[in-house]
Structure formats: structure tokens, C-alpha cells
Simulated assay, not measured.
Amino acid sequence: MKQKWKGQAAKNLYWKCVYATTPQTFNKAMKQVFTENKELYDWLKEIPPRHWSLSHFTGRALSDLQLNNMCEVFNRQLTPGRDLPIISCLKFIREYLMKRIVKVHMKIAKCKGPLTPNVTVSFKKIKKDATKCNVIWNGATKYQVSGPNQEQYVVTVDQRSCTCRMWDLTGIPCKHAVACIFDMGEHGLDDGVPEKWVDKVYWLETWKNVYAHTIDPINGQEEWAPSPWPTKLTAPKHHVRIGRPKKNRKKSAVEIELLSQKVGKAKKLPRKGRTVTCDICKQPGHNKRSCKKRKTGDIREAGGLGTQVDATDAAGCSGV
């Protein structure tokens, strides 16, 4: 998308479709894309929305993230260890994880409150927005909630669900649900603490349990005990490939397929439309390998660079 549509306008249209939580909101956002950018609309229609829009997510995985930055950051940290032999590579990963767990332990020790730090900040804004909502109770477990922007949704408290689908998708009560929890606290139906309605995946105690384990240090390789395995393992035949070793992450089959559909089977931007210039004769339309002057002997290469030598210069050089 960045290769075809530059600027902030197309980006804003795209993110409106991404953050739409209901099919109705998604269709409305797509209509706006169709009105303002027909080509972008046709491009987005080719990609199933269940892969990129909240409105078509199932809610099975509770998450408030729409990007895979965590995976990319972790993958970047492992880049220096990829070129090492397998034992050294595993040692690099083990030592990195040891240091990472310690850093998380130090961060957890500074945290206060029932929720993780990032969720605490975002939930504070949700509670502030909830004070602007109007709540009507049906006498059972459902509430009708109206917002300041003329929106109206139904909250089912016992099922932890709201028709805006934000609570269903993330596990964090939306502003409509928080307004209902405040109303329950005022009428004695609940203690009115919205934090306890947040899913356990965002609790600080859950974060502590995830990083409760540690990785023990080990001795150096010279202190390792000989293996009792009777079979002798021999090193496999290794063939050194020509060229510089690749350091980029290997793309999955899905990434390769999507990329090939957009920029060709070469899986990179094509050179179609670009003019090649010869490094020897400086003429466009060919490179130095197919240069006619080089083939006819008019070009002599010195030090890896093509240098044209005429008859006068050759005679002068031979005289010297």
C-alpha cells in the first residue's frame, strides 16, 4: 500500500477500516474509501477483511494490538546470533532471554495496581469517556448505553459483551460497559470497580506468573560431561555457497504469495522502466558485460575498471 499510495489521506482511510469493530461501521468506512479513492477500494477488496479489520475478528484471541511489532522487535534482537554456529546461536538466545527476564522482573517490581502499566493508562481514558455516557437498565442483565456522538449500544454484563464488540475483542471493558459498571455501583448491584471486570490476561499478577520462571546459567563448553550416547555423531557435509550469506528473515509462504501478487514473481520491486547505463562507454541501453567496445578489444581493464586506450596513448606508453 505504501508503494502505491503516498501521503496521510490514504493512510487515514485505511485505519478507519481497520479500527471498525462492527460490520456496519466497516461498511461505512469502506464506502468512504470508495468515494475518495476508488483504486484503494479495489485493492482492499481483494484482501479478506478477517485478516486486517477488527470488525471481522472472532474475538478468540483477546488482544488490543493490531500490529505484530512485538514479533518484529524480538526477531531483530536475534539478528546478531543468526550467523553463528548452532551451539553459539543457542547460547546467544539463552543469554538474551536471561537478561530480558531480569529486566521484566525489575519493571514489574516498580508497578502498582491490579493491571499492567500500559492497560492502566489506556483504561484510565476509557473510564473518563464513560462518564459522558447515558445508561438505561432493563431490570435484568442488559443496559442501553448512549454516547455523546449519538451512538447507542447494548451491554450484557453477565456475558461481558457489548454490541460495539470492543469488550468482546480485547477483553477490556469499553466505555459503554464501564458506564454500566458505574451505574451498578450507584444502585448497590456491584462494588462499582471496573478494573475487576478486565480479563485476567491484563492483570499484573498474570504478568508476574508469565515471567515467574528463570533461566539458569551453565558452565562453559570445556566443563561439559562427555555424552554417554554410544553412537558417534559426525558433522554433515557442508557446501559453502557462492556469494554473501543472507541475513534477512525468511518470509513465510503467505508473505511470498501476497508480495508476488503485488510486485511480481521476483518478490522485490521490478526494474521495469529503468534504463541501464554501461560503466565502460557510459552509453545507455546495455551494461559492461555486453559492451561492444569491450568485445572488440577497444577497452582495456586495469585495476578492475574499464579504461579506453587509443592508438596514440598506446604508442606513447610503449615509448616510455
Rank of each mutant, 00 (worst) to 15 (best):
K2Q: 11
G7R: 10
P23C: 02
T25C: 01
K28F: 04
Q32N: 13
T35A: 13
K45V: 04
K45A: 08
E46D: 11
T58K: 14
D64G: 05
L67P: 00
N68E: 09
C71F: 06
T79A: 05
R82H: 09
P85I: 00
M106K: 15
K110Y: 01
K110R: 10
S122F: 04
F123V: 02
K125P: 00
K125D: 09
K125V: 00
K128M: 00
N134C: 02
V135N: 13
W137E: 07
T141F: 10
V154I: 15
D158S: 13
R165F: 07
D168W: 08
T170C: 05
I172H: 07
I172D: 10
A177N: 12
D190H: 10
K200A: 12
W203R: 14
W203L: 12
E205C: 01
K208R: 15
V210K: 12
T214N: 12
N219E: 15
E223K: 14
S227T: 13
W229H: 14
K232G: 02
G243Q: 08
K247M: 04
N248C: 02
A253D: 15
V254P: 00
V254K: 15
R271P: 00
R271D: 12
T275N: 05
Q283C: 08
D298L: 06
I299H: 02
R300L: 09
G303S: 12
G319F: 04
